[in-house]
Each structure stands twice: as structure tokens, then as C-alpha cells.
Nucleic acid binder design. Structure first.
Lengths: 131, 131
DNA sequence: TCTTGACCTTCCAGTCACGGGAACCCTTAT
DNA sequence: ATAAGGGTTCCCGTGACTGGAAGGTCAAGA
């Protein structure tokens, strides 16, 4: 299977697959003409990566998870630790974004959005403190 | 006022202030020795930028907002449009992250995290669908 | 057989919003 | 004279790709 087939099968752009090889996440075979060849194992790895990335794991986390996945003797605690760390990061981001949303939402709510120059949004951005 | 004073006054790193000048967001004066000189106006702009960035506005959005801020005849509708667009992006991110958190949280919850190799997190990442 | 077009390859550059660090200039105090 | 602590520019690196150029490979049609 060539790269475009692998791309279709996994939903990952060909460019991304090449990138994953470049940074050593995967090692697809090569056929005699130099084309990358993807086996079921490669596809499984790519699917794994696609899912882990979709859950927001960093490439480095993915590398660890992939290594653990390929290690039949790994302890689930190791996996859980990585996942929990990532989960905390996600929750921090959500909390930050929620704060942004609330502040910004309040500003938008109080802004008439008409043709006049007075604008609470700009006023707030100019103020010395958000209060 | 030199750059380190401006940095203290606004909370922005000196590097960031230089960067903002480089991309044309601000244009501080220069004194005869080549040092940047920050006036009250510069500080106000920097504070404005710091606040807008803290609310997650992109540099491009900041550029527009700053231009609108300096235009006494602007319509508040223009500002509101930018803020609303950004608000939608934030809400999309929150929704994506929340979905991630829920999925990942469920996986972590069902993972014993002991020394044994069985791990629902990896199993799920290997599965053909999250369901 | 030739050619066309769809693949594939590598390599280089750009993205966003800075941060680190080198190499060097200016000012003030000792 | 020197040292410390500013300031300056310039270049490289980040994460995780994405776009594009230049060129090799393959299958099908005229």
C-alpha cells in the first residue's frame, strides 16, 4: 500500500505521515522504487497516532504511548500517568478559555454594535484594569 | 522611559515589545543613543495589546482592534464583529477540549493504573473506533 | 513508442508568537 | 580603568505540520 492509500485509510494527510517518519514515530518499509510501503502494522500505528493526536496528546506523549503500546509487559500505571498529566493540561486550558469567554462574552453583550463610536469593548481594553 | 521600565509597567517581556515593534504593531520613539523611548501613548498601546492578547485575540485581531481604537470615528459594530468572531472561536475550542476531556477522563477512570499490562486507554487508542 | 497525467520522492521555506543567546554598544559607579 | 547592568541587532529554535519546487516512477491511451 502506497502513501496515498495509507492517507485515505487513516485520515492523516500524506505530508503528516512523511513527517511522522521523519521524526522517527514510524518506520514504513520501502519498495524497490523508493516508495513507502504500508503494512497492516504501519496502518495500525498510524491509526493509533491519529486517535491519540485527536485526543490532544503531544507528539512526545504519542511517542511514549506508542512505545508502551508496543511493549507487551508495560504497566498500565505508566499509561495512566501520561493520560492523567494530559488530562490536567486540558482542564487548565478549558478553565483559561472559559474565563476568556466569560469576560469577552460580557463585553460583547454590553456593546451595542451600532454605527456610533462608543464601544465598551475598546473601553475595557483601554482601562487600567479589568476589575 | 526605556524598554525595561515599559516591560515592568505593562508586564510584557522586553523581547515581546521588540517583536511588536518589528511587526509594526507599535512605533516607539528612539533617543539619540538608539534606545527605544516609551511615552504614555506607547504604554497605553502596550497595555491595550497585553489585555487583548490575554483575552486570546490573535496578533492580526489586535492589529485591527488597535487601529479601531485609534480611530475616533470607528463604529462599535466593527469592534463587535471582531470580538464576536473571536468569541465563536473560543467557544469552538472549549467544546473541542471538553469532548477530549470527557473521552480521556472516562478512559482514565476505567484504567486501574496498576502494574499489570492490561490498559483500557491503549486498548481504546488501538480500537477501530471510539464509539 | 511516445506522451500525458497521476503518483511518488526529497528538500527548502513558511507558519505563530515569541524565547535564547551571541556579539556588541552605552551609561554609571567605583 | 574597569565592571556591572542597561541597551541594540541578528540569527536560530520551538510544535506540528503545510505549501511548493524540482525531479523520478508508473499505468494507460494515441
Amino acid at each position: 500500500m502506497n502513501i496515498s492509500q495509507a492517507s485515505k485509510a487513516t485520515g492523516l494527510p500524506a505530508k503528516t505521515i512523511r513527517y511522522y517518519e521523519e521524526i522517527g514515530l514510524i518506520r514504513p518499509m520501502r519498495s524497490t522504487n523508493g516508495y513507502r510501503t504500508f503494512t497492516d502494522t504501519s496502518l495500525h500505528q498510524l491509526n493509533f497516532l491519529a486517535r491519540a493526536r485527536a485526543l490532544g496528546f503531544s507528539i512526545d506523549h504519542c511517542r511514549s504511548l506508542l512505545a508502551l503500546w508496543e511493549d507487551r509487559d508495560r504497566a498500565s500505571a505508566d499509561v495512566r500517568r501520561i493520560a492523567l498529566k494530559h488530562l490536567n493540561e486540558i482542564e487548565k486550558k478549558i478553565s483559561d478559555l472559559t474565563e476568556m469567554r466569560d469576560t469577552l462574552g460580557e463585553l460583547v453583550r454590553t456593546c451595542d454594535g451600532d454605527g456610533r463610536p462608543d464601544c465598551p469593548i475598546l473601553n475595557s481594553l483601554s482601562a487600567t484594569s479589568f476589575s
